[in-house]
């Protein structure tokens, strides 16, 4: 339970933050930027199950490319990313950030588009610096979008399962056994569908509670 929350909150926060940064960087109508943005979406185009498998191969201590890169940097014994109970959950967070940052980027760009260009121009002419423009214009206008993105990332983070299944099977020990992995096991592995459905409803309640602040934030904005 604690692990589920940690995973959900940490990965959502990182995804939204990274997505915002990348979106601000990519939000330019310059030649080539469209292609860059499109390519950036690529991690999302691969089924999470295979994302997990591919990262597991890359992180393998026997022939993984990651260990090789570390050895080039002079580190001969990097951590066992997936097999060390102290690292495994963080590795799962990392991989989920890798896959889903593009989601945040996509919608933040859409949100930025809604900010009228002339407003920015005017502010710029009035001598507002980049940071001031961001702080006082972009941020308030983008807030509803960011809340909605965070909302979906939290919901999906809570359900995250494929990556864990493919990379660690809930291990080592129970370091990456999250609620959704547990529900999956009850449902598909043991075929105890009644129990799985009950757990799923409990989870539903928990996500609803967890996302309530985000929901309220979003609604207040739109009511204003």
């Amino acid at each position: 339970m604690r692990r589920t929350l940690l995973l959900t909150i940490e990965s959502s926060a990182l995804q939204v933050a990274a997505g915002l940064g990348v979106a601000l960087l990519f939000n330019r109508n310059w030649p080539g930027m469209g292609a860059i943005r499109t390519l950036f979406l690529a991690p999302m185009m691969i089924a999470p199950l295979f994302v997990g498998m591919i990262w597991r191969l890359m992180l393998s201590d026997d022939f993984g490319v990651v260990r090789y890169l570390f050895s080039l940097a002079g580190v001969s014994e990097p951590p066992l990313w997936l097999d060390d109970p102290d690292w495994a959950l963080q590795t799962v967070v990392f991989v989920s950030v890798w896959e889903w940052t593009a989601f945040a980027m996509l919608f933040v760009i859409a949100g930025l588009q809604a900010i009228p260009g002339d407003v920015m121009e005017a502010a710029s002419l009035d001598g507002c610096g980049a940071w001031q423009r961001f702080r006082h214009m972009t941020w308030p206008l983008l807030r509803p979008t960011l809340l909605a993105v965070a909302l979906f990332r939290v919901i999906d983070g809570f359900k995250l399962f494929d990556i864990i299944f493919a990379m660690t099977a809930g291990g080592p020990g129970d370091a990456t056994t999250t609620l959704s992995y547990f529900v999956y096991q009850q449902g598909l592995a043991f075929f105890d569908l009644g129990y799985a459905a009950t757990l799923a409803l409990v989870m539903l309640g928990m996500v609803a509670v967890l996302t309530a602040p985000l929901l309220r934030g979003g609604t207040e904005r739109s009511a204003a």
Binding site: S60, D61, D62, F63, E77, L80, L82, D83, T168, G171, P172
Partner: peptide, 19 residues
């Protein structure tokens, strides 16, 4: 065993032997 064996799936054992 190799360092990474603690996380071995049987597929990993197979590959370790093959290589």
């Amino acid at each position: 065993a190799p360092r990474g064996a603690i996380g071995y799936h049987w597929n990993d054992q197979t590959v370790a032997m093959q290589t």
